[in-house]
Design a protein around this nucleic acid. Structure first.
Lengths: 144, 144
DNA sequence: GTCGTATCTTACGTTGACGTAAACTTCCCC
DNA sequence: GGGGAAGTTTACGTCAACGTAAGATACGAC
């Protein structure tokens, strides 16, 4: 704890995931916690990787795509060809993300407009209620 | 064709999806093409919806979430309560997207930095090629 | 008519990302 | 030394989002 190592339970609590999820990510080689006896222990780097994993998921990437990006962050394999490969796929992901960023900006503007439009329609309907027998909300702005 | 109606095949070709996918979206009520005989015919509005569907998928939304957003774009059901419900979920999606937009911007910057870092390392290695047959100082694992 | 092709429905199969249940160690506590 | 708590492996189950195969239908061409 003081040396920055966390148990699987502490990890689950602080990242809001289940043990199953962490073991699953390990099986898919997205993370490789140290073993003390038979227990897993996660260090600072493992936590950083998990943060990236969860973020990548929010962006809609698959675990496999995320794994490839993580290779770039990983100082382990100092193999030239593999690093080049990691770089290539990372550049692809980056361009995906840049495209998505632009598109997302546009989509936000569109959705905002759509919401404003729908709100306007509702306001109009409230001003002229559609023949309902009982209407309780007092939004009748009648000023003498 | 001239009246803006497209067959399922034309849709598949222009949106790069399979017939199965279109029928599946229809089954989940994300789209409802007109029927001429037993064949499906997609109009301009159907195409607009499909564009939104595919975009939503790229953002990582589920088909169900997308369906709820689409209700807002749909001028069919003019039911007050349902419109309010659609508005509520649309606002949630919007705030998701705004959060994701910010986060994505940060992630792009991070990944760019990471790529630059890896490129720098490679340049350094290229400057001092490790292909010497004599033993290196460290443990580079592979010895041949 | 029948042949080809385009589409349709029905239904079981697959893949990714986990959930869940069962049965086993390990360690600590009393 | 028996009990619990935390963790482990193994393996089958599940859900979303389709893939894929089988057989029926419709329509124009020949």
């Amino acid at each position: 704890m003081t040396d920055g190592l966390m148990t699987i339970r502490e990890m689950c609590d602080s990242f809001n995931v289940t043990p199953r999820t962490l073991r699953f990510y390990e099986d898919r080689e997205l993370i490789s916690p140290e073993r003390r006896g038979q227990h897993r222990l996660y260090n600072r780097s493992d936590r950083a990787r998990l943060t990236l994993i969860l973020r990548g998921k929010r962006f809609g990437f698959s675990l496999e795509q995320i794994r490839q990006i993580l290779e770039l962050y990983d100082p382990s394999e100092r193999n030239y060809r593999q690093t080049q490969q990691a770089l290539a796929t990372a550049r692809e992901r980056l361009s995906d993300m840049e495209r998505q960023y632009t598109e997302l900006g546009a989509a936000i503007i569109e959705l905002r407009a759509q919401i404003l439009g729908a709100e306007a329609e509702i306001d109009a309907e409230e001003a002229v209620p559609p023949a309902s027998p009982a209407q309780a909300s007092g939004m009748t702005g009648d000023s003498r």
